[in-house]
Amino acid sequence: MAGGPGDAPDRSHRPFDAGLQPERTALAWRRMALAVAVGSLAALRILPEVLGLWALVPAALGAAVSLVALIVSQRRYRRIHTILTTSDSDRVALSGGALPAALAVATVAGGIMALAAAVQLGQRITY
């Protein structure tokens, strides 16, 4: 995939590879952001029974995570595309792990909140 040293300008106008790996990854990020957004809407529908107005907090957090992930992943796609299509080597540093780590932490935090809400919900209903 590494071209000659002088032909950098042309490659940035077309995808990095025929398999469209960066594009598919960008779409996977969008699916994930969409899932988070849908989950936030569901939380807004369900949680007010237990939390009252406080249900806005997890819903807003979810919406923020979704929006930030969308923006960050879009910028990340642009950056990856630029790196891959302009560098002489295709063995370049792409992912340092901060983004997956942050996303995993956010998901676990959301899961813990959901667990707490479910326990509360059960107590509210079963007495």
């Binding site: 996977a28 994930m32 989950g39 569901a42 959301g110």
Partner: peptide
Amino acid sequence: LAWIRTSLAMVAGGI
């Protein structure tokens, strides 16, 4: 990301 979506689906399903 597919695992994360699986996790989100599990959480949503539990709720």
